[in-house]
Structure formats: structure tokens, C-alpha cells
């Protein structure tokens, strides 16, 4: 662990339900802004984190009593690393989905109403890493903030 990067970190945890996640994500958005996250990319982080957290609520704890989602954000020089941990089911195949976007065609009734979550995460994060540890999942997302931006 690089000590200087640990100084600017924040933690948040909440029960993995849709309502608690909604409140938790809103809180996280405010905290990221308060931590001086560059505005240009702050929205990207917010969108990606909301999708990642919703996936935990919807999939990791599917068919079991929801426990806690733990979020850890570390600002390190020009990179923000966010770790999302849960004690739910492992990801299928022990890897995150590729995030192919659903097809948008010309027929209104066939328009996709979902399936954009991982696509958005892949579009917005500069690096994605998933690890299955003993009894818990850790998804790490990195976001770069070039100083010149």
C-alpha cells in the first residue's frame, strides 16, 4: 500500500437493497464531489458506480438475504480507484461480463429496456478488475484524471 494514496480515501457501506443503494449512491456522489473529484469526469464515475452497485443488489445477492455492500474509494495522484465488495454469489465464470451493448433497431416495440449496465461500466472506467476471495467479491474500477484535462 502506498501510504500517500491512503490519505485521501473514503468508505461507505449499506445494506444491499434497491432503496438503500439508491440512498448510498446519492451519498457517494456528494462525497466524491466534496473530495474535489474533477467535474469533467465526476459524472462518469457516478454513472459507472451506480451500475456496479445495482449489479451487486440485483445479481450477487439474488435468491439470498442481502447483506452489506462496501465501497472504498482511494484518490491516488491522477487516478481514482473504487473497490466494491459484497459477500454474495461469485460472478458467473469468475469474470465480469464483456458489456456488449444491446442492439437499437428501428422498431419501437423491440427497443431494449435493459442490458446497458456493464456496457456503461466498460465505457467509463479505464480499468476493471474482479477478484473472488474467500466468501466475498471485490470489483475494482479505476478512473483516470489527467491534470491537464
Amino acid at each position: 500500500m502506498k501510504h500517500n494514496c491512503e490519505q485521501d480515501s473514503m468508505e461507505l457501506s449499506f445494506p444491499a437493497t434497491e432503496v438503500e443503494a439508491s440512498v448510498g449512491i446519492a451519498k457517494l456522489r456528494n462525497q466524491l464531489t466534496a473530495h474535489g473529484l474533477p467535474a469533467a469526469r465526476a459524472d462518469d464515475v457516478k454513472i459507472a458506480l451506480a451500475e456496479a452497485i445495482n449489479n451487486v443488489v440485483e445479481h450477487a445477492y439474488a435468491g439470498m438475504p442481502p447483506e452489506t455492500v462496501r465501497i472504498n474509494c482511494m484518490m491516488c495522484r491522477e487516478t481514482l480507484e473504487v473497490r466494491i465488495e459484497d459477500t454474495g454469489h461469485p460472478m458467473p465464470g469468475l469474470k465480469p461480463p464483456d458489456g456488449k451493448p444491446p442492439v437499437i433497431g428501428n422498431i419501437r416495440q423491440d427497443l431494449p429496456e435493459g442490458g446497458f449496465g456493464w456496457f456503461l461500466i466498460h465505457q467509463l472506467a479505464s480499468k476493471i478488475k474482479y477478484e473472488r476471495h474467500k466468501g466475498y467479491n471485490r470489483l475494482s474500477l479505476w478512473f483516470d484524471f489527467p491534470k491537464s484535462a
Binding site: A26, R29, R108, L111, E113, F116, L120
Partner: peptide
């Protein structure tokens, strides 16, 4: 001030339920 992909899907669904 914020929307996620579920919210987006709900807006798409709202358009679909208007018919063509």
C-alpha cells in the same frame, strides 16, 4: 439530477407503452 440504466429502461418502456 441522476439516472441509471434502470431509469433509462423505464423511460424507454414508457415510450413503448404509448404505442407506435
Amino acid at each position: 439530477e441522476f439516472i441509471d440504466s434502470s431509469g433509462l429502461g423505464a423511460i424507454v418502456a414508457s415510450m413503448k407503452q404509448l404505442g407506435d
